[in-house]
């Protein structure tokens, strides 16, 4: 994990990453590695601010106001979240903020949901082979009980 620096500002590291916000979730795909990510909860709420260049304290303050959550908890989670994204190469540093977006515009949740972050590497094989799609017998992927796996 890369430690977040309080005053550092970030943008989406594109290329190689591409990102979209959809349905309260952020999906990021790294086109070089084939790894893709799902960011949910407070991470999806904070995402527009983060890639527009808001600092960790600015994001934390906004989330505390939005959720009415404990500041120490939120600040810790924001730092960990940014560190995780930076460690995955999803973020690059920038000098100034493009514009600060306040997540207060989102409907207020009942409680601070925490930062959801999932990493998927099941597509990496596509980058090293020609696109031959294989499935198991009878057109279905093998069942786990058959000793198979999902691909």
């Amino acid at each position: 994990m890369t430690d977040a620096q309080p005053e550092r500002r970030y943008a989406l590291n594109q290329p190689p990453n591409v990102g979209e916000v959809i349905d309260g979730e952020v999906m990021v795909i790294n086109l070089e590695t084939g790894v893709y990510y799902s960011i949910t909860g407070a991470g999806a709420v904070a995402w527009p601010m983060l890639i527009a260049g808001a600092t960790a304290p600015e994001i934390g303050e906004s989330l505390v106001r939005h959720y009415g959550a404990d500041a120490a908890t939120v600040d810790h989670d924001v730092d960990a979240f940014i560190g995780r994204l930076a460690g995955e190469g999803i973020l690059r540093a920038r000098q100034t903020a493009a514009h600060a977006l306040d997540p207060v515009a989102e409907p207020p949740p009942t409680a601070f949901p925490g930062f959801g972050f999932e990493r998927f590497d099941d597509m990496q094989a596509l980058l090293v082979i020609d696109p031959v799609h294989e499935v198991g017998d009878f057109g279905w992927p093998p069942r786990p009980a058959d000793g198979g796996h999902d691909r």
Binding site: V18, D23, M27, I29, L31, G34, M123
Partner: peptide, 24 residues
């Protein structure tokens, strides 16, 4: 919509270099 994007986008994009950001 996010579930469908997760199902549709990674393989559609990774199989086609130079189309990523727009196609996504």
């Amino acid at each position: 919509a996010a579930e469908l994007l997760r199902a549709l986008a990674p393989s559609s994009i990774l199989l086609f270099p130079l189309a990523g950001a727009i196609a996504f």
